[in-house]
Structures are given as structure tokens and as C-alpha cells.
């Protein structure tokens, strides 16, 4: 198996085909749009935060397999986490996709994204949903959501 096939292993292909939490949340407390104008990837991240805990998280949009799988895996990883834990995981993922280094215990299933660091042009694909999530946390957009 070459490095590319290693990156696009079963987990990525699976999440690309069957993204988890791939829908809109009706009344999210936080949301943000992520757009990569260079490649056209576009995602929306929705969160409901109650007492500092992420009780709901989902996404919509389109992009390459890496960005879509990263979004999907992110929603799984963050459900039930506190806002502080989410910020911390952002830092770990950011570090992992740029250096390839990660502590298996902290990163869990997200380790499948570590191979991205070997393809520098794709790092932005993997990190886009995470930046979007961070933007959503930084700024509540409750009032900006119109349906």
C-alpha cells in the first residue's frame, strides 16, 4: 500500500460515503460557514451547547473525501465534550495534520487523518471543518440563523 492509499484508508472512504451527523440542526446555539475558495469546499457546522457541553453537533456541505471525512469524524469526536475539550482537540488535530505526530490516547479514531501531513496541499482540506467549528465556538450565531 502506498502513502496515498494509506491515507485514503477504509475509515476515510467510509465517512466520505456515509458521513455521520450530516444534516442541519433546527435551532443551533452556534454555527459557522467554512469555505475554501481555492478548491470550492464549503461546509456548515452546527452546534448546540448547553451548560458548556456540546449536546448536538452536525454538518452540511460538500468537499473532497478528506474534508468530508474530517467533518464527519469531528462531529463524532466532539459530541458530549466541553467547549474547553473541543478547543484542546482542535490544537491536537492541527498539530497532527501538519506534523503527523499525535498521542494515540488523546486523538483516538482521528489518528486516521495523520497521513495528511505527507500531502501538504491537502492539510487545508483536513483542517477546514475544525477551523469552522472553532469560529462557531468563538462567536455565537444564534441570531444569524434564519430558516
Amino acid at each position: 500500500m502506498n502513502e496515498l492509499q494509506e491515507l485514503y484508508q477504509q475509515v476515510i472512504i467510509d465517512h466520505n460515503h456515509n458521513p455521520r451527523n450530516f444534516h442541519k440542526i433546527k435551532h443551533p446555539s452556534h454555527s459557522a460557514k467554512g469555505h475554501n475558495p481555492l478548491c470550492g469546499d464549503k461546509f456548515n457546522i452546527f452546534l448546540t451547547i448547553k451548560d458548556d457541553i456540546i449536546t448536538e453537533i452536525s454538518f452540511t456541505g460538500s468537499g473532497c473525501a478528506i474534508s468530508k471525512a474530517s467533518s464527519s469524524l469531528m462531529t463524532e469526536a466532539l459530541l458530549g465534550k466541553t467547549v474547553t475539550e473541543a478547543q484542546k482537540l482542535f490544537d491536537l488535530v492541527h498539530n497532527m495534520v501538519t506534523t503527523g505526530l499525535a498521542n494515540a490516547k488523546d486523538i483516538g479514531k482521528l489518528a486516521v487523518l495523520s497521513g495528511v501531513h505527507k500531502f501538504p496541499v491537502r492539510v487545508k482540506c483536513a483542517i477546514l471543518p475544525w477551523h469552522t467549528m472553532k469560529n462557531a465556538l468563538d462567536k455565537s450565531t444564534q441570531t444569524a440563523i434564519t430558516e
Binding site: L4, C39, G63, C64, A65
Partner: peptide
């Protein structure tokens, strides 16, 4: 997706 495809063609 075209970006994934281009990456595989590049390989």
C-alpha cells in the same frame, strides 16, 4: 471529488 481524483492521478 475532483481533488481526491487529481491526487490519485498525480500518484
Amino acid at each position: 471529488h475532483p481533488h481526491d481524483l487529481a491526487q490519485f492521478l498525480d500518484q
